[in-house]
């Protein structure tokens, strides 16, 4: 009995880690605290649903369409909507406040588009819902596949950031945007790229989530909240932190839902959040900020 929640906790945790990696890029590098992040995820869920049911494209092929599209949209959002705020902000803190306000507005626009179309109903589709036995527990094949894809994408991102020139530039901007300018890094272009990359990751997360979870149009806020908590728990800008914190959150939620009550998962999330704030606000892997 115990291995079943453990396995679903790990798959959920892997997806949370992937989603949080996107947010940590947007917040850690581009310094945009994106409150409409979860809405991008829900939009990707609906896009995958539409591709699967209307044009019968399977969600894995759907990734090839949805992810680049999300990257382009996010890049445009950054260039058109957020660039004026970046230019006008006198400091990073001021940009943070402005970006919170702007993306909060985007959240309501996104909700306003999705709610009239999909209403409050829950949606799901059946893709590879084949039971698979592992260690005596039954898991659906789509869950395992989603976890596999999350791992592949996560590893690719990690290698990209640590082993390539562009990845090093991104990490440099995350550490210190002023010094990054001095070594001839185009900070604004890098920030825009990181923002678009973050948007691509959350879209990938959305497509994977849609394969095994039921979703509705107003689920975005909860996903944003969870991604934020994972990012803070792991330490802003730290990919390894995202992985560990995502796993902790996914496992906690699954165990609370299995053994206590499914209605209390968000409460469990908040208890973890408070514990992090009280005990280690810089995150598990974060360096203490002065």
């Amino acid at each position: 009995m115990f291995t079943e929640p453990l396995l679903s906790g790990i798959t959920l945790g892997g997806i949370y880690a992937l989603i949080a990696m996107g947010l940590t890029l947007q917040y850690g590098v581009a310094r945009i605290m994106n409150l409409s992040y979860g809405e991008s995820l829900v939009a990707a869920c609906f896009a995958a649903l539409w591709l699967f049911t209307a044009v019968s494209v399977n969600p894995l092929l759907g990734l090839l369409v949805i992810v680049p599209l999300a990257a382009i949209i996010n890049w445009l959002v950054y260039q058109v909507l957020l660039m004026p705020l970046v230019k006008r902000a006198p400091s990073r803190d001021a940009l943070e406040v402005d970006s919170i306000l702007a993306t909060f507005g985007l959240l309501f626009i996104a909700l306003g588009v999705m709610l009239p179309i999909f209403g409050g109903n829950y949606f799901s589709y059946s893709f590879l819902a084949i039971p698979v036995k592992i260690f005596g527990a039954t898991v659906s094949a789509s869950r395992l596949l989603a976890l596999g894809f999350a791992v592949v994408i996560g590893v690719a991102l990690y290698l990209g950031l640590t082993r390539t020139r562009a990845g090093t530039a991104i990490r440099a901007v995350a550490v210190d945007p002023v010094s990054a300018l001095l070594v001839a890094i185009n900070v604004r272009a890098t920030a825009a790229f990181a923002y678009a990359l973050g948007g691509a990751l959350v879209a990938a997360g959305g497509v994977l989530v849609s394969m095994f979870l039921t979703f509705n149009a107003s689920l975005g806020v909860v996903f944003t909240m969870k991604a934020l908590i994972v990012v803070i728990m792991g330490g802003v800008g730290n990919l390894m932190g995202c992985l560990v914190a995502g796993m902790i959150l996914g496992l906690t939620e699954t165990f609370v839902a299995t053994y206590i009550d499914p209605g209390l998962t968000l409460a469990a999330t908040y208890i973890i959040f408070i514990a992090v704030l009280l005990l280690r606000p810089q995150g598990l892997f974060g360096a203490r900020r002065s």
Binding site: L101, G105, F108, L111, V113
Partner: peptide
């Protein structure tokens, strides 16, 4: 039906134009 979109747009206008 479009209340949320319109309010969102009004909000962005305020944030950008009259901070």
């Amino acid at each position: 039906n479009h209340f949320s979109i319109l309010v969102g747009i009004a909000f962005l206008l305020i944030v950008y134009a009259i901070p």
